[in-house]
């Protein structure tokens, strides 16, 4: 039961990583690509972390996985704001249809 839930979470996580990469390749400008990376990849990592937490050897190990995800999330949010500010300061215009 736990195993099948873990497998489902891991597969879903991988699916979001695929979506993130697809968005990175297909979306028309840097801002929309940022949307894809910050949301899809972080969710993908979150689901994979959840799946691995179900199989973790101890509570502390599970907690550590969660802390890693939260740190990556924070770091990624900061990075996406830096890239967006950088692009805006260079007057890179958003794509509009």
């Amino acid at each position: 039961m736990t195993d099948s839930l873990a497998i489902a979470l891991l597969l879903a996580g991988a699916g979001f990583f695929l979506a993130g990469t697809l968005g990175l390749l297909r979306f028309p400008d840097v801002y929309t690509r940022l949307h894809a990376l910050t949301k899809a990849d972080n969710l993908g990592l979150g689901l994979i972390v959840l799946g691995l937490m179900l199989r973790a050897e101890s509570g502390a190990a599970a907690g550590k996985l969660l802390v890693i995800w939260l740190l990556v999330l924070t770091a990624s949010a900061a990075a996406s704001q830096l890239v967006a500010s950088w692009a805006r300061a260079r007057r890179i215009r958003p794509w509009q249809g």
Binding site: A19, F27, A36, L43
Partner: peptide, 27 residues
């Protein structure tokens, strides 16, 4: 926040997978 983030990820993933790219971005 996690629930919203899940919704946000599904939303952008759906857009990335759709062949016609349903995007009308603005600022």
């Amino acid at each position: 926040f996690l629930w919203q983030s899940l919704y946000g990820g599904i939303d952008v993933a759906a857009r990335a997978f759709k062949p016609r790219l349903p995007l009308t971005p603005t600022l």
